[in-house]
Design a protein around this nucleic acid. Structure first.
Length: 755
DNA sequence: CTAATATTTATTTTT
DNA sequence: TAAATATTAG
């Protein structure tokens, strides 16, 4: 199919093209019809609706390579933006194999990385210096708290994270303080947030820092106030490509619109059915409105799915059809011969049983030769991972939990980075505050107060205030000496930035500051791990030219280097699973209140329900061969037992694509979800009902604790296996018993007798 | 300034 | 329940 290529393919025409290892025609050969159209439609606005598993990345990379190879643009005139570093890296790697080194001069990266690249060049135009610091969530909150104190807003009545959230949403929408609409009649938090917005932004500029939202927001201000700069980039970026367009927020949308004005060659790839980040400011509307926003836009649907079995696709499609606000798209199985296994549905008594059953299923798959790395448990909320972990530990099945604290979010790493930040950027008040008294130097709250006082009074940064303060006798002598020493330390380290390698300097700093010594002296069990982490960080520094490069990497690419190495079952949230695929996928916790999540329903109504449904869709479409959905009648949440009915999503799965697994019943072999359901009005289990959901019933009600127990707290009891013990807690049928020999255990009532 | 104790409050988290 | 944070006593 290489001969239907009709465009100039002549490197000799003086377009300054790189010699390319492939011809445009060859690139198209590996594509199906719809994919090929998505690649060949190079000019004008284009929306590629790519369903799960339809070869999106292939289209993206091929399109880039095609445009280059056909001589339409030089690499540096192409902009390709993604959301994650992972996506950017993957694209870059694939491109490198397709077109070679030319791929390196492409503007390819995350929205934030590209934003930073542009912003560093023109930082002064928005009031920053080009070496500005990028703050993470932690720093943002600290800063906001400071401002709240200064503005007299009670941090207890108004939780800083909540206010920060409001600020972030404004930024996501491209709003600067002057553009937020009057909130004086709005609710209290919004009023307060607005009052804080301008001071917060001023403070960021004062400490020469930007938060994540600012990276794009400043780009917008820059473009709006400096048309010449905008024109330069508009001109440069002849072709613009956007991945995961359904996840863009307003600010990213505006940014793209500005940049694309001139050439209008904007290609957005996305899937409205996989939009699951509205709570972070993503606007599904962006993708739904694409055709109106960009006149003359073409829309191409990729619906041929190469990943999942027909049964799985049927289940997913049937479910997502219940959503109203969608562009409409149906996945077709590329392999039509075998529909594959139906989605397995299973009700269990409680979370513990669910974990047991799932892990049994995993072991069964493993016995049939399925590798553990091809199986994943996808949960709605992080706390669900615990029960699975416990089960994995008991059974000895290797697993890994994705998520958790990232390397660069660990306390010791953040501390070390704070030191480095102060070295490079003495104005970085936040970093200074973080390590001022770490390790303990006798520079506690009171010293910090005076420091703040002087800084605010004289309008200088904390470091400068510190310099002035040690020349006076305002501080206690001990504090003054300590502070003077610290300033001298930093001056000395800073002096060596250019003379020593990043690695050497950091090691020196960790040593001289006493920070390493602090952990060495620490007797707590996690101290050795922290020392290891610090060493690892120092070792990682080897790869960087200088400290600044390292810090940039840290703030933008804070990745979990969870090596995918071994054969382990993956446990992670549904959100984290987007973009991944496995042979076998387990979807536990399909209960009203957990999934869809109660809070989403309360706060976001129907829109949120549809997003939850999309999340379910994402979950199902991760699977190639098998899907196991399960739900528990009882679950322990925040220490209380709660009862729930099965998720409405279960009844939305098309019956033909689903198989009810045999109801296992409770440990005593009585109730399984298949035969029984809880009747709220009568407060009891009723026969029948099967899969029929009972929507009008309040989900996740707290079950009032059994008013009596044959073994009240304090009773002495005997257990066949564990021997004698004392009842410490009663939870319905479960007793927590402190056994004389084996310690605390949870046991069902019927396994014990009076002792 | 530090350490012990009370209180609070619990989704999802690409950068 | 348990972790994180705020308060208060030493």
């Amino acid at each position: 199919m290489s001969d239907d290529f009709t465009l100039p393919d002549d490197p000799g025409t003086g377009t300054g093209l790189v010699s390319s290892p492939v011809t445009p025609g060859a690139l198209l050969e590996a594509l199906n019809d719809e994919q090929r159209r998505a690649v060949e439609t190079t000019d004008g606005p284009l929306l590629v609706l790519s369903g799960a598993g339809t070869g999106k990345t292939r289209v993206l990379t091929t399109r880039l390579a095609y445009i280059l190879a056909s001589g339409r643009a030089q690499p540096w005139r192409m902009l390709a933006v993604t959301f994650t570093n992972r996506a950017a890296r993957e694209m870059r790697e694939r491109l490198a194999t397709m077109i070679g080194p030319a791929s390196e001069s492409l503007w390819l990266g995350t929205f934030h990385a590209i934003g930073v690249r542009i912003l560093r060049r023109h930082a002064e135009l928005v009031g920053l210096k080009s070496n500005f610091t990028i703050l993470d969530t932690d720093d943002q909150l600290r800063l906001l708290k400071q401002i709240m104190e200064a503005e007299g807003i009670d941090t207890r009545k108004s939780p800083p994270p909540a206010l920060m959230g409001i600020l972030q949403r404004w930024k996501d929408r491209g709003l600067t303080p002057d553009k937020v609409r009057d909130e004086s009649s709005g609710e209290r938090h919004r009023r307060e947030a607005l009052a804080l917005f301008a001071p917060y932004q001023r403070r960021l500029l004062a400490v020469n820092a930007a938060d994540f939202g600012d990276l794009l927001l400043h780009n917008l201000t820059l473009f709006q106030n400096h048309p010449d700069v905008l024109a330069q980039y508009q001109d440069q970026f002849r072709y613009i490509l956007v991945d995961e367009y359904q996840d863009t927020n307003v600010s990213q949308y505006l940014w793209l619109r500005l940049l694309t004005q001139r050439h209008k060659n904007l290609c957005c790839v996305g899937d409205d059915d996989q939009s699951i980040y509205s709570w972070r400011g993503a606007e599904v509307g962006n993708i739904l409105r694409f055709e109106q926003d960009f006149p003359g836009a073409q829309v191409i649907r990729l619906e041929s799915n190469y990943r999942s079995s027909a049964s799985i696709l049927a289940a997913a499609s049937g479910l997502i059809r219940h959503n109203k606000g969608r562009l409409g798209k149906d996945l077709r199985a590329a392999a039509l011969d075998d529909p594959g296994d139906k989605v397995s549905l299973r009700g269990v008594w409680d979370g513990e049983e669910e974990a047991r059953v799932v892990v049994e299923e995993i072991e069964a798959e493993q016995r049939q030769g399925r590798s553990l790395g091809e199986m994943a448990i996808l949960v709605r909320a992080g706390f669900q991972t615990r029960e699975f972990e416990e089960r994995f530990i008991i059974t000895g099945v290797p697993y890994r939990v994705v998520g958790g604290p990232r390397f660069y979010e660990r306390q010791e790493i953040r501390d070390a980075i704070a030191y480095l930040r102060v070295i490079l950027q003495p104005d970085d008040d936040l970093a200074l505050v973080r390590i001022l008294n770490v390790p303990k130097r006798g520079l506690g709250d009171s010293t910090l107060q005076t420091l703040h006082l002087v800084a605010r009074g004289q309008g200088v940064t904390l470091m400068e205030a510190a310099r002035r303060l040690v020349e006076t006798d305002e501080l206690r002598p001990t504090a003054r000496v300590a502070l003077r020493a610290l300033i001298a330390d930093f001056d000395r380290w800073r002096d060596q930035v250019d003379r020593k390698g990043a690695r050497e300097l950091t090691a020196l700093m960790l040593d001289e500051s006493g920070y390493m010594a602090m952990w060495l002296a620490d007797r707590s069990p996690d101290a050795p791990g922290r020392i290891e982490n610090l060493k690892e960080m120092v070792a990682a520094l080897e790869e960087y030219e200088n400290l600044a490069g390292f810090l940039e990497h840290v703030s933008l690419v804070m990745e979990n280097d969870q090596r995918n190495d071994h054969d382990r079952v993956t446990v992670m949230t549904l959100h984290a699973a987007k973009g991944l695929e496995f042979d076998v996928v387990f979807l536990p916790g399909w209960e009203e209140g957990l999934f869809p999540h109660q809070r989403a329903l309360e706060e976001g109504g129907d829109r949120a329900l549809e997003e939850e449904r999309r999340l379910a869709y994402v979950g199902i479409t991760r699977a190639r061969r098998r899907v196991f959905v399960s739900f528990a009648a009882n679950r322990r949440v925040y220490g209380r037992w709660q009862t729930a009915i099965q998720s409405r999503f279960i009844s939305e799965l098309p019956p033909g694509a689903v198989r009810q697994a045999t109801a296992p019943g409770v440990p005593g072999g009585r109730r399984g979800f298949g035969e029984y359901r809880y009747d709220w009005k009568a407060s009891g289990w009723r026969e029948g009902g099967g899969n029929a959901p009972v929507i009008d019933v309040p989900a996740r009600q707290v079950v009032t604790q059994a008013s009596f127990s044959p073994y009240p707290v304090g009773d002495r009891v005997f257990h066949q296996k564990f021997g004698y013990g004392v009842v410490r807690d009663v939870d319905g049928e479960k007793l927590s018993i402190l056994f004389d020999k084996t310690g605390m255990k949870k046991v069902m009532t019927r396994f014990v007798q009076k002792g």
